[in-house]
């Protein structure tokens, strides 16, 4: 059965184009920068097509519902685990710590 994959969207119906400008935020530019550094020599941890393949395999709600760089950072996480650079356990632990830190810093948090 002919299957169109989620990312392969040429010709599908879609609404008007949101043409608002958005200057990439610092977080977004850091994601972009890290992705490029780790891909390029001397790191050469992965190839562009591996990043694409990983993004194409993200859960649909993330692919469509998420911000562009959310897809990238989620892909980076998966690639870092796939390549054995980081483990899911250490990422989850650090993520919990970062969340707590920022929610505390924001004040008024629970």
């Amino acid at each position: 059965m002919a299957q169109r994959r989620m990312h392969d969207m040429g010709g599908l119906e879609a609404g008007p184009i949101d043409r608002r400008e958005h200057e990439p935020t610092l977080v977004e530019r850091r994601i972009d920068a890290m992705m490029m550094i780790l891909r390029d020599k001397p790191h050469a941890l992965w190839k562009t097509d591996e990043n694409r393949r990983t993004i194409e395999g993200l859960p649909p709600e993330l692919y469509d519902g998420g911000a562009y760089y959310q897809r990238w950072v989620e892909s980076m996480r998966r690639l870092l685990v796939e390549k054995g650079v980081l483990s899911d356990a250490e990422i989850d632990a650090r993520l919990a710590e970062v969340r707590a830190r920022h929610r505390g810093a924001a004040g008024g948090g629970s």
């Binding site: 980076m76 990422i91 650090r94 920022h102």
Partner: peptide, 19 residues
């Protein structure tokens, strides 16, 4: 838009920091 004048608040932004 100059949206970065606030703290990261999304979980994926925290993921960037963690990684």
């Amino acid at each position: 838009f100059q949206p970065d004048l606030q703290e990261p608040s999304q979980d994926w932004e925290f993921l960037e920091i963690a990684l």
